[in-house]
Design a protein around this nucleic acid. Structure first.
Lengths: 321, 321
DNA sequence: ACAATAAGGTTGACATTGTCATGTGTACGC
DNA sequence: GCGTACACATGACAATGTCAACCTTATTGT
C-alpha cells in the first residue's frame, strides 16, 4: 500500500482515473468470466441478474438499466423465452409493455450462475487477509458513491459524514507510529526520536490499557485511516486524562476531523469521570493549537526543548471538564 | 448503497465486490467511449495506447498484455499498418517476432484520441470538488494495489533486481510496527500485544541506537517498503547480536527477500565483530524457520507462552559467526 | 546434424455480439 | 379521430471475437 499519493494537479487525477479504467477493463474480463463457463452471453447474464433481483420488468426498463440496445435486448429475451427461462406477457395497464419474469427454471439456472460467480470472487478474496478485504470493499464503495451521483438514479440519501470514527483495531497503533513518523518528518523535519516517542506511547498504551478509562479513536474514510487520537490516564495525576497522538492526514484536513477527534476525547473524558484533560504539544503545530483553543483548552506551561532534532517549544494545555 | 459499511462476513465482501463489478461494467462503457467518436475500435485504441507507451513491442507481448486473441490482434495490426499508423519489421534477434512501432502519423492520431479521452475524464471530474477527486483517486489506487499483486504481477517478467535494500529512514520504523501489526493479526490472529511489543522494540532501537554496531534494513520495491529486519546489540550478552523484526510483505514473498535480509544481517554482524547472532521467533512461523535453518541457525531453546492472545511456542535460534 | 517440438505470426472460416433503420401495434393529448 | 410518441420486434448488416490450420523460425534433445 503506497502512501496514497495525492494528485497534485488535475492532470494527475485524470491520469489516475484513466489508469484505473485500463486496469479494470483488463481485470473485469477476468472477473466476469463466470459466464464463459455457461451457455449465456455476458449480456444475457446481466439480464438474468436484473430479472432475478426485481419481481418483474419491462424490456424498456432493462434496456435503460443495462444500457442495451432495444433490438438486441429483444432478441436476448426471445432466446431466453425459447429456452423457457423467462415469460413475457402483456402488461395490464399498457398493452405495449410486456411484463418479463423469470420462470422457476430461469431462477434455478440463475442461481447456479450466481453461486459460480460468488465462488470466483471468494477465490479472489480468500488469500487476501481481513485488512485488505476491508480496504478493498471500502474503496469500491467509495468509488461507487463518488461516481454514482451524476449518472445513475439519485435514489440514495446524502451520505452523511464522509468519515467515521471507531476504536482501534490491529494495525492501527502501528499506523499511528508510521504516519506520525512520516508526516512530522516531512512537515517539520523531526527525526526518528519523535517516531520512537510515538512508538513508546503506543506500546505503553497497550501495556497499561484500561478499557474503562482509556480509548483510542481512528478516523476512517473509504476504509483508509485518516486520523487518530487517544485518551489515557495521566500516569501521575489521578483524575487527569491525557490526550495524545492527535493526527489528521494532509489529504483529509479541512473536514473538521481534528476537531471531531478532540471533541470525542473531551466527551469521553468527561463521561468517564476525569476532572481535567491535559495534553502536550509544540508551538509550531499551529493548526492543532487552534483546535485546542477553540475547545477551551488553556496554555498552562511552556518550555523549550531540543528533542526531535530541532529547537522547539513544548506546551502543556489543559481543560477543566 | 448503504453508507460505507464494513463487511461483517465473507459473503458481504463478495457481494460488495460483485456489486462493484456490475457497477463498473456499466460505467466503463460510458467512460471508454472516446473511441466511439473515432474510427478505431476499442481494441485498436488499446493497442495504440500500448504502443504509444513503449518504444516497440512484439505482437505476442501486446496479445499477452491486452489479453487479445493472436489472430484478432494480427488483423488489427494489419489494418493499422495499412493506414500507416504502425510499422512492422522483423526483429534482429529472432526472425519470428516482429517489432511493431507507431509511425509519426500513428503517434499523432493517438495524441488526438488521448487528449479526447482526457477531456472526457476531466469533464467527469470537473464538477467533483478537490476532496472528492482525491478520494476517488485514492480509492482507485487502493483497488489497483490490492488486486494487482496476484494476477497481473505474474505477467511481469522477473526483472533482474526487483527490490533493493537500504537502511531506515523516517517513517520506516513506524511502518514496521504497522505491518507487523496488520500481518500477524491477519495471518495468525495475534492481538495488539504483539503490535505493542514491536513498538517497544522499535522505540528501544532508537533510544539505544549505536550506528556502528546496530542497523535496520528496509527492502524496497517500486518505491514501496516490502520487508524489514534489524540487528541490535544483545542487551545482556556482550559480543552477541540480535536479529529482530524480520518481515516480508505477502505480495513480495517468494523473491528471496527474507533470505537476503537475513544474509545481510549475518554479514553485518560478522563484520562488526559479534561472535554470535541470536533471534527469537515462534514455531508457527514456518517460512521464517526455513530461512534460519538454511542460514545455519540452530534451535537452542523452546518455551511455550501465551502472549499475543494465543498459545504459542517461542523459539530461540543462534548462529555462531 | 537432425528430428521433434515449441513459439511468433498470419489467414480463412465462422460464431457471436452489437447497431441501425424500419415496421407494427398501442397510448395519449388535442 | 388524428398526429405523435412509445414499447417492442425484426431484417439487414457491421463489428468484434474465436478457432483451427498453416508457415516460418528457434530451441531442445539425441
Amino acid at each position: 500500500m503506497p502512501p496514497a499519493t495525492t494528485p497534485r494537479t488535475a492532470a494527475d487525477a485524470i491520469d489516475a482515473v484513466r489508469r484505473f479504467n485500463r486496469f479494470y477493463t483488463r481485470r473485469i474480463h477476468i472477473l466476469d468470466e463466470a459466464h464463459l463457463r455457461s451457455d449465456f452471453s455476458l449480456a444475457a447474464v446481466r439480464v438474468l441478474y436484473e430479472l432475478a433481483h426485481r419481481h418483474a420488468a419491462s424490456a424498456a426498463e432493462l434496456a435503460r438499466e443495462l444500457d442495451l440496445d432495444a433490438g438486441y435486448l429483444s432478441r436476448i429475451l426471445g432466446d431466453l423465452g425459447r429456452r423457457q427461462l423467462v415469460t413475457r406477457q402483456r402488461a395490464d395497464h399498457d398493452a405495449r409493455v410486456s411484463r418479463i419474469r423469470l420462470t422457476a427454471r430461469g431462477r434455478a439456472r440463475y442461481a447456479v450462475l450466481d453461486s459460480r460467480a460468488s465462488d470466483d470472487i471468494a477465490a479472489l478474496l480468500e488469500p487476501m487477509g481481513d485488512t485488505s478485504q476491508r480496504r478493498l470493499v471500502a474503496a469500491m464503495e467509495a468509488i461507487t458513491t463518488l461516481l454514482d451521483d451524476g449518472t445513475t438514479a439519485n435514489d440514495r440519501p446524502q451520505n452523511a459524514a464522509p468519515y467515521l470514527l471507531r476504536t482501534h483495531r490491529p494495525g492501527d497503533l502501528g499506523w499511528m507510529v508510521w504516519r506520525h513518523g512520516v508526516l512530522y518528518s516531512d512537515e517539520y523535519g523531526w527525526d526518528e526520536h519523535f517516531e520512537a516517542l510515538v512508538a513508546r506511547i503506543v506500546s505503553d498504551f497497550v501495556a497499561n490499557f484500561d478499557p474503562a478509562h482509556e480509548r483510542c479513536w481512528i478516523a476512517e474514510r473509504d476504509g483508509e485511516n485518516v486520523g487518530s487520537v487517544m485518551a489515557v490516564r495521566h500516569p501521575e495525576r489521578p483524575g487527569v486524562a491525557k490526550l495524545r497522538l492527535l493526527l489528521v492526514e494532509p489529504s483529509a484536513r479541512g473536514l473538521g476531523i481534528g476537531r471531531r477527534l478532540v471533541d470525542e476525547c473531551i466527551r469521553f473524558s468527561r463521561q468517564t469521570g476525569y476532572h481535567t484533560l491535559t495534553l502536550w504539544t509544540n508551538s509550531v503545530l499551529v493548526a492543532a493549537r487552534r483546535i485546542y483553543e477553540a475547545a477551551g483548552f488553556q496554555l498552562v506551561h511552556e518550555a523549550p526543548h531540543d528533542e526531535f532534532g530541532h529547537d522547539l517549544i513544548g506546551q502543556t494545555w489543559e481543560l477543566s471538564l
